[in-house]
């Protein structure tokens, strides 16, 4: 407690001022989403709207096809999260607990995958999706079709189904599970699949929540790849992309409050999930920082 007693007034001042800077943009977002025509973009600036009317929210629903955007976001996010959890738990177990030739090499390879920045793979991955064999009218060599996989929601899911970081996180966690327990199950006649499914998997719950949350939030907010894929097929838009594109349609002074209403709607689910599980998220960030 001695560390706390020193100069708390100064610490409070810094943290509260910084906290205001952190919260103000979100407050402005919420307040602007209630501003009516003639209230937004007027000098002098006022933070509070004249009334809390819901016109912008109604407008957002009619202009944006929010249900479709929401559905796409949910399908993509849930698929990616479930897939990352399963594949990470499988690979993490092999790397943590099984003895086999090439284990060290594969583990190093997994670490190296985290060093490849996403922007480098953007162009070739797009071209690969476009020329995906036997999809979107392509022949088995990936030629001749119209758009390949880029016309399907799979294009937003497949490139994110496995995460090197996820495998690393799972492996680090599983390595600390006691060997005796796995050995005992083996003696009792369990095969590796049963050991993984019945003994290892139930114990990974805390790290699975951390990884699931990081993946969920990252996928829900993903922007660049979705923008690229949906630029030729708008039916694939997710919430962030759909809301951003609304901007280019109409006069910005009129659309900005509607965009803000859309953003409030799209941010709320992640915010709720984050606040409920924030303990796990925080631990994940710290773990990834102190490896």
């Amino acid at each position: 407690m001695r560390r706390h007693g020193k100069f708390p007034w100064f610490a409070y001042l810094v943290v509260i001022l910084g906290g205001v800077a952190m919260v103000m943009p979100f407050l402005d977002m919420v307040m602007s989403s209630f501003k009516g025509a003639g209230e937004y973009g007027v000098i002098p600036y006022k933070l509070l709207p004249e009334s809390f009317n819901l016109d912008n929210y109604r407008e957002a629903f009619s202009q944006l096809e929010l249900p479709r955007l929401f559905r796409n976001s949910v399908i993509v996010t849930v698929s990616v999260t479930v897939s990352v959890l399963i594949t990470s738990a499988l690979a993490g177990y092999a790397l943590a607990k099984l003895r086999f030739r090439g284990r060290a090499v594969i583990f190093r390879f997994i670490l190296a995958t985290m060093m490849l920045p996403p922007f480098l793979l953007l162009i070739p991955t797009f071209l690969i999706m476009l020329n995906w064999p036997l999809a979107g009218g392509n022949d088995f060599l990936g030629r001749g079709g119209d758009g390949g996989l880029t016309t399907s929601l799979l294009a937003l899911i497949l490139p994110f189904t496995v995460s090197g970081f996820g495998i690393f996180l799972m492996r680090q966690f599983m390595i600390s599970l006691p060997d005796e327990m796995l050995e005992a199950a083996k003696i009792d006649g369990a095969n590796q699949w049963q050991i993984w499914r019945l003994i290892v998997l139930p114990q990974t719950k805390p790290v699975a929540i951390t990884l699931g949350l990081i993946t969920f939030i990252g996928t829900w907010n993903e922007y660049i790849w979705t923008l690229l894929i949906s630029s030729s097929d708008p039916s694939l838009q997710t919430l962030p992309v759909g809301i951003q594109l609304l901007q280019s349609f109409l006069d910005p002074d009129r659309t900005m409050p509607i965009v803000m209403a859309g953003l409030v709607i799209s941010t709320l689910p992640v915010l709720v999930v984050f606040l409920v599980f924030q303990k796990y998220y925080v631990r994940g960030v710290v773990l990834s920082g102190l490896k």
Binding site: P25, D28, N221, V270, L271, V282
Partner: peptide, 25 residues
């Protein structure tokens, strides 16, 4: 958690809110 809030928001929310705050009005 307060300082961590922007990390949870999509870049579309962050970018547009700041664009709005940077405008003349």
């Amino acid at each position: 958690v307060l300082y961590f809030l922007p990390v949870v928001a999509t870049v579309v929310a962050i970018g547009n809110v700041w664009k709005m705050m940077y405008q003349p009005a």
